[in-house]
Amino acid sequence: MIEIHVIDAFADKPFRGNPAAVCLLERFPSDQWLQQVAMEMNLSETAFLSPQEDGSFRLRWFTPTVEVDLCGHATLASAHYLWETGRVDRKQALTFHTLSGQLTASASEDGWIRLDFPVEQITETEAPDRLADALGGAVPRFVGTNQLDLLVELDLEEAVRELKPNFAIMAELGVRGVLVTARSQDERYDFASRCFFPALGIDEDPVTGSAHCALAPYWRDKLGKDQMTALQSSARTGVLRLTLAGDRLHIRGQAVTVLKGSLLHLPAQ
């Protein structure tokens, strides 16, 4: 049997934040088996870890339909899993080798986990045809891109919360995802967002750490702040503490394990 946990990331209590499945393997089996497990878990992300001789880990992320290059909440969940199960001492920082290069995670005494991710700069772009239709009629005040996703700023946080996207149209925009954001009207947060990835089989991702690699530098330039607190305003909600340091972004969040189980059907040898 192979152990698998479901962990709510960017959450301080169960059933909030973004759930990710985490599975530790001695070595990676076929991509087909990994994709089948992710499809079976049917979460926005399933993370697969494999230990390396130097104490680091290879880390791969799968949605129910595809492998992705970068995922924040499943990286946070993976770090939480390794420390909580005692496979790595919590005082020891973690190094992950991924399709987006080397990522690290470290734990603080207050229970928060810090991830070190690359920054993705946003450049203004023309709004794609039918973007307004994809946004359910919402009118953007800014549209930008990091070559993979669109970043759309709306005038009010309320408009972000009440957004009713047309996912069929959004999936045809020719981008990986759409990040919709606005300045927060709550003094506890600097900005709010919702993130949609229907082209990847995820209509709305509850909390998206990797999206903040683009959202954080965008709002730094608007607010003049290197340290910010962000709210992702999905139905589950999640809070992220962000610190920009050159071309890196430190993302801090919490995590809670909600399920522990075993995979009974093992990959072919």
Rank of each mutant, 00 (worst) to 15 (best):
S184M: 05
W83L: 02
G86C: 05
F142S: 00
P267D: 11
D149C: 02
A9Q: 06
E124R: 12
H5F: 14
A9G: 12
L94A: 05
E67M: 04
V88K: 05
G174T: 07
G224K: 06
F28I: 05
T243L: 12
H80V: 14
W219E: 02
F196W: 06
K222D: 02
L76W: 10
K91S: 15
L173H: 06
Q269W: 11
A171C: 11
F191H: 12
L115Y: 07
T98Y: 06
L223G: 10
P118Y: 04
V37C: 11
A20S: 05
L150Q: 09
F15R: 12
A192V: 14
A107M: 03
V152K: 03
T257A: 13
M41Q: 15
A93G: 10
T145K: 02
A93Y: 01
D133P: 03
E40N: 10
F196T: 02
T85H: 08
G55H: 11
L151A: 07
L151F: 01
V256T: 11
G261Q: 04
Q121L: 15
D31S: 15
T65E: 15
P29R: 08
H97W: 08
L163R: 13
L179F: 08
T123P: 06
P29W: 12
G177D: 07
A268C: 08
V258R: 06
L94T: 07
A79F: 01
T65K: 04
A268Q: 15
A268V: 14
C23W: 03
L99K: 15
L94G: 08
D129H: 13
P206W: 02
E162K: 14
L115K: 12
Q121D: 09
N146P: 03
P140T: 02
E172Q: 04
A11M: 08
L76P: 10
V68Q: 04
S44M: 07
L82A: 09
G253F: 08
S184D: 04
R236E: 11
T65Q: 09
M1I: 03
A216Y: 03
S262I: 09
E45Q: 13
D247I: 09
W112M: 15
V143K: 08
H97D: 02
N42S: 07
S234Q: 11
A20G: 08
L25M: 02
H212T: 04
D247P: 09
S193W: 10
S30R: 11
G246N: 01
G201R: 12
M39Y: 12
P128I: 05
G55L: 04
R252F: 10
K164L: 10
L59D: 08
P140Y: 07
P64L: 01
A107Y: 00
R87K: 14
E162L: 15
I2L: 14
Q227D: 14
D221C: 00
T85C: 03
T104C: 05
V256M: 10
A235Y: 05
T181E: 05
L43K: 00
G86S: 06
Q121W: 08
L264H: 14
G253C: 00
R90Y: 14
